[in-house]
Amino acid sequence: MEALGINTTWLIAQIVNFGLLLFILSRLAYKPVLTALNTRKQKIQESLDYAESVKKQAAEQQKDFDLKLEEARRSAQAAAAVAAQAGEKEREVILAQAREDARKLIDQAKEQIEYERKQMLAELRQEVVQLSLLAAQKAVSQSLDEPAHRRLVTDFLAQTDALSKN
């Protein structure tokens, strides 16, 4: 043993050395570092969890947002459709009104024309009566008395009237 340099003093010294080093390093290195590693692990886990939850929340919000957007789009479309329908109705009402008005105007105009034609016909008839009277007076000259004469002409006119109506 002595030849190999083994002796109790040095052996014990080395064992004590190791014990001392074990103690110091445990206190100075292992404990704080392992604690730090654990804390960091926890922090990272927490951060990851938080990120995950935020991500989930964001996804939910996105979904919500999409849903609302879709809803808004649909309601906008509906409103547009309603408006379009109302416009159509309005247009038809206006058109109908216009058609009605036009028809009324035409009718009025027709009535007017009819009335004027009748007027003119009446006037013309009067004129013809006068002219016939004058002509008949000249031709017959005193052969008939005034009332008989008038009756004669009126009969004649009635006949022509009936003719023209047919």
Partner: peptide, 10 residues
Amino acid sequence: DLNMTIGLAL
């Protein structure tokens, strides 16, 4: 040094 290696082994 064998003292150290024996120490550690022990």
